[in-house]
Design a protein around this nucleic acid. Structure first.
Lengths: 166, 166
DNA sequence: TAAAACTACGTAGTTAACTACATAAAATCA
DNA sequence: TGATTTTATGTAGTTAACTACGTAGTTTTA
């Protein structure tokens, strides 16, 4: 597919990660569809979380799934329109909206859990190569927690004969 | 950061890939800036490609960098406005626009090549863990070339006690 | 206990990719 | 060689995340 960029390797990693991500998302959607469900992969984090935790506020969900709260709100809006979730005010804190699955939502989860298993199995099959992508991601996240890309680059600057502007 | 989702592991891989991608992009931008350059990481594929191939049409660039042509066009517009690249009609094929770096563009490349080296070194440092992310990506792309996520899932359906709708 | 700071939620606008469609030039074919 | 198909480019609109900012409750503090 791409020539020069593959050779440049590591510098275009952001691009390649995103493309891979898109591929998984698109195929995921098709697989749900082939089972007769119009379930969008992007809903998974919210729905999966609510299946396990049953009732959470907007920000709690955002934290669980690792999204910003505005992104979470727009997902919740879609799911609310489809009556997969519903919300009610928290009586002890009027700022909060407590979200949970509706009956319809619970039925949906029960119906698609076997698909989640299938997706999981299939992804494991694809990802279980010599260098395991899932583990690699975890390891890289770990590395970045120790010291960010930016901080490491700052430190490495001194190794090169290059002046910085700050 | 995210709890439930990390445990659900593989199903949220698309999300995690994208977040990682964003992190690299943002820090990349900061690093360019710390050297006094307002060079956006998303420009890299185009600029790098033109440095090596010197003159290409819009679609040729799109293929080299693995983007769609509309995405490529919008990158080219930005770079053209900044006078980093310029274009001229191909005399032997009036449909084509031949793109190349301007003098300013060539000077820019000369100036940021040391940064590219720094970025490369730093990324290698981060990515060189037990499971190498770069290699993992290549291996996964290879797996998907053999058989797509969708096709594999279709095949695996038979392994489960589940009916399909098509 | 009033003011200040913080937290939860919401809206608006941005970004960087995409798909779908349109047009014009070139190549192919009947 | 005229009609059809393909190729190259461009535009419009979509998507799924983001940041920035605003408002209304809650908590802390002077």
């Amino acid at each position: 597919m791409s020539n020069v960029i593959d050779e440049s390797g590591i510098l275009a990693i952001a691009t390649r990660l995103q493309r891979l991500s898109d591929t998984f998302r698109k195929d995921g959607q098709l697989i749900y569809k082939s089972f007769g469900h119009d379930f969008e992969p992007k809903w998974f984090p919210v729905v999966y979380t609510l299946d396990i935790k049953s009732q959470l506020s907007v920000v709690e969900i955002a934290n669980e799934i690792g999204y910003t709260h505005p992104s979470t709100i727009s997902l919740l809006k879609e799911l609310e329109k489809l009556k997969i979730i519903h919300s009610k005010k928290d009586k002890s804190d009027e700022r909060k909206r407590l979200i949970s699955l509706t009956e319809k939502g619970k039925e949906l989860v029960a119906a698609i859990k076997p698909i989640w298993d299938l997706l999981r199995k299939t992804q494991i099959e694809i990802l279980d190569t010599k260098n395991n992508l899932m583990k690699a991601i975890e390891e890289v996240e770990e590395q970045l927690k120790i010291s960010s890309f930016y901080d490491r680059a700052e430190k490495n600057k001194s190794l090169m004969g290059q002046k910085s502007s700050d």
